[in-house]
Amino acid sequence: MSAAPQKTKPGAEKIAVTVAAVVRVNDLMTRFEFKRRDGQLFPPFSGGAHTVVEMKDGEKTRLNPYSLMSSPGDLSTYAITVRRDDIGRGGSLFMHRNVQQGDDMTITYPVNLFSLDLRAKKHVFLAGGIGITPFLAMIHQMEQSNGNWELHYSVKTKSLGSYVDDLTQMYPNKVKIYIDDQSQAIDLKGLLDGQPLGTHAYVCGPKGMINWVHATASAQGWPTECVHSEEFLAPAPGEPFQVRLCKSDIVITVGEQESLLEAIERCGVEAPFLCRGGSCGQCETDVVSADGEFVHRDHWLDDEEHASGKKIMPCVSRFIGTSLELDR
């Protein structure tokens, strides 16, 4: 049709914000609260949504997704909690070390890849560590609509249990905390076994926990569509490799510490993206030719597509081999 031809922009719509508060939660976690710079309310969102925070780190622009943890009922503020990762790629360290109250930043409109199934008669939330953040927003949403929910929240130590006190005070009958170093663990089998029909389970936490919940639920006969999970992957480092971008007609080198997507962007080629964590599918790219092996790490393509060698998700996946050509 092309009534008014517009080029699709990479990434979600952006919002200019000011850091209204930086709050230390515990030794590893810090909460950042944002206000809009134009004084307007933020767009409404649903529990489970994330925003991508743009960090200007010297020459480098870092783009990291974080779950919105504030209440969907209060659109004056968006809040995220960031776990410091001392051996990661540096985004969380930048947030912890460099971002201060009063700073101007840019974040994206919310995107939800982990939404509640509103048909559920009951929602069981299973959180591990920093995986608590999307559930904080979901709990607000549930409370607003009189939803039936419970939270099982596993933390390493009592002192690293972010928001444990708030949660247990506000919802003493709905929240159960499990502290690893006190040898407390979720009795998952018993928990899943006792749920009424129509219950949906949601898990967010380390990969092992997510796999454990899916496997246990499946073994107990839970329908797969009743178990939901979200895991954002950070791009993993790897050996540098070269890629030819056919449409752009350039050859680029992907460095050890950067993702393929980041390398494409660094070379001035616009590529679509949303979550940057292997979940949303937006950056899916066709492979023109390849001589080597793909290191697929995304949750988007299925096994068959991974095996075909015809597609790659450049936000988290890499390549080892002699030549790679992409349709970009």
Partner: peptide, 16 residues
Amino acid sequence: LKFLLNVQQGAPARRL
């Protein structure tokens, strides 16, 4: 369907 699943808030789409 892939396109529609990815329609984002603040970025509506259209066709005739």
